[in-house]
Design a protein around this nucleic acid. Structure first.
Length: 445
RNA sequence: GGAGAGGUGACCGAGAGGCCGAAGGUGCAUGAUUGGAAAUCAUGUGUACUGCAAGGUACCGGGGGUUCGAAUCCCCCCCUCUCCGCCA
């Protein structure tokens, strides 16, 4: 049986129904719809939410009607139950039968309107933070700092695909034979370097930054994808397994954030900080012709991710720390980078605020994204129902979730190749990686 | 893949058509007791939606059905466990 036969279109509805209904606070939507609309508009594109008012009031009216009938049925049924001689309540029994039928109709209408509402709400992106710079395109992103010195060279630096090919550590042609475009094979010291980077990053985050290491499944179900915001909107970007409700993860953010889906966390345990190495799988639909050469844009790449669950009041400062933890990887590798504050038009669907870290690539004489650190506030927490009990006592409240790459490993490897290349075509191994490379100091032809 | 057992609140566990949002226990919270603690006793202790409020509604793995009324009966699905088989 295939997913299609199960009604793939209903997947999101099936699970959304069992979960918190509103991706954005319903009170906020009711009372400040125009304000919400205005903030969404700063993202660019159309995010019309004018449909909310009618669907919501329609829902509430139906709900009120259905519930008062149910209340009547409950009380009359209780009466019927207490009456020994059923002939005395025959009229009530007949009347309640009619009431039950009406309830069924109303429930059906309610289900329809709630499905419509949920469908639409799932497609509404997060509200950008007040602090997020307002902009219309990525050109409006704000560079907030630079680190490291860009070396002047007396030779023409090569792009990593030439370096990797000449060193025999990177093979795109054979990858094409195996899997097609946008795949790569690392060989020998290249494979070792990738593994060294993964281990270096994980050790840094666990030992110095005190994250808990997680090795999650690389395939997850649609509930998980909805929880973090990949579904239903970005189904085209995901690889899906045939015949089962499983997707290859596009980032460790998905399984790691969903670790606590449908849970109420202990206040005292927050913030919870995880780091995870996983491969990531992306279709890269709609990016044909972009970054076709090299390791920049692959269908499969390795990434070390950091994920945090925090109290709402702590998420801003935790984002600063997360960003600094990601930057630390580059500082230890001595790779020049800059940090960019993404504007409202450039932040992702689920994000309220995002800082990108861009590493310097001498082979291409440009900065390229190597990490993206975001605060999702309660957006994912609502979708995935991840809560905590403030001070242990009162009502459960949504946590804030954050995550960031720490770092994209393939891009780090290419940054190392390009930045550490020598005039003779060899590549020096960054000092912090040498213990992970069996002491190797240089990759030569 | 075959056979069996089972999914109930933070946890264990009873309930087998109405008196069940759900006994009892554990845990937790508050109070009493104490110099302080342990023990003991008392009280309290789910979530969501909806309503100005009182309140109402829903939820016992998920979906559907029977019934005036379903945690409880029927059907379908999912998951977990045990045994057998197969396999990294």
């Amino acid at each position: 049986m295939t997913l299609e036969n199960n009604g793939a279109n209903n997947i999101d509805l099936l699970c959304a129904k069992t979960r918190t209904f509103f991706m954005i606070d319903s009170k906020l939507l009711r009372e400040n719809l125009s304000d919400v609309q205005r903030r969404l508009t700063t993202r660019g594109n159309d995010h019309d939410i004018s449909w909310f008012k009618d669907l919501d009031s329609g829902r509430r009216q139906l709900l009120g009607e259905a519930e008062s009938l149910k209340a009547e049925r409950n009380s009359v049924s209780a009466l019927i139950g207490k009456t020994k001689d059923k002939s005395q309540v025959q009229d009530e029994i007949v009347r309640m039968k009619q009431v039950s039928n009406r309830i069924k109709e109303l429930d059906e209408e309610l289900r329809t309107i709630e499905e419509a509402l949920t469908q639409r709400l799932l497609l509404v992106p997060n509200l950008p933070d007040a602090a997020c710079p307002v902009g219309k395109t990525e050109d409006d992103n704000v560079e907030i700092r630079k680190w490291g010195k860009i070396e002047a060279r007396d030779y023409e630096p090569k792009p990593h695909w030439d370096l990797g090919n000449e060193l025999g550590i990177l093979d795109f042609e054979r990858a094409t034979k195996l899997s097609g475009a946008r795949f790569s094979v690392l060989i020998g010291a290249g494979a070792r370097l990738e593994r060294a980077l993964i281990n270096f990053m994980l050790d840094l985050h666990t030992e110095q930054h005190k994250y808990i290491e997680v090795l999650p499944p690389f395939m997850v179900n649609s509930d998980s994808m909805i929880g973090t915001g990949q579904l239903p909107k970005f189904a085209d970007d995901l690889f899906r397994a045939e015949g089962v409700d499983l997707y290859l993860i596009p980032t460790a953010e998905v399984p790691v954030t969903n670790l606590h889906r449908d849970e109420i966390l202990n206040d005292a345990d927050l913030p919870i900080c995880y780091t995870a190495y996983t491969p990531c799988f992306r279709k890269e639909a709609g990016s044909h012709g972009k970054d076709t050469r090299g390791l920049i844009r692959q269908h499969q790449f390795n990434k070390v991710e950091m994920v945090k669950f925090t109290r709402p009041e702590d998420s801003d400062s935790e984002l600063d720390k997360l960003l600094d933890n990601a930057e630390e990887v580059l500082r230890q590798l001595k790779l020049p980078y800059r940090v960019v504050d993404l504007c409202t038009a450039d932040i992702g669907f689920s994000a309220a605020r995002t800082f990108d870290i861009e590493v310097w690539l001498p082979g291409q004489a440009t900065y390229r994204e190597i990490s993206s650190c975001s605060n999702f506030r309660d957006f994912q927490a609502r979708r995935a129902s991840i809560r905590y009990r403030p001070d242990g006592g009162s009502k459960p409240a949504f946590v804030h979730t954050l995550n960031g790459s720490g770092l994209a490993v393939g891009r780090t490897l290419l940054a190392v190749l390009e930045n550490y290349q020598q005039a003779d075509g060899s590549v020096v191994i960054p000092e912090v990686l040498r213990p992970y490379m069996g002491g190797m100091e240089r990759i030569s032809i």
